[in-house]
């Protein structure tokens, strides 16, 4: 074990701003990216379903 207490862990020997500023931004980025890609995927599927519906309605109305 490296840390005597949670306080020591968060303090990172005085480098807290730099260590957590780095890990924090990475964590946010690595969570946001897959969420955004997932949104992109559901957006495409939504528009594909709408297009399919439009095609079907066109067929019906012929």
């Amino acid at each position: 074990m490296n840390w005597g207490s949670p306080a020591e862990f968060f303090a990172m020997g005085g480098y807290a701003l730099y260590v957590w500023g780095s890990f924090g931004v990475c964590a946010v980025a690595l969570v946001m990216e897959p969420i955004l890609v997932s949104k992109r995927q559901s957006g495409v599927l939504k528009s594909l379903r709408r297009a399919k519906l439009a095609d079907e309605l066109d067929e019906e109305n012929k």
């Binding site: 990172m12 005085g14 260590v19 780095s22 890990f23």
Partner: peptide, 24 residues
Amino acid sequence: SFFVAPTDAQQGEGYRIIFIHVPT
């Protein structure tokens, strides 16, 4: 990175940024 690797003689705990800086 946080619980096994020891502190660095030169850079103290600040060196731990290496664990994401080098991978990225």
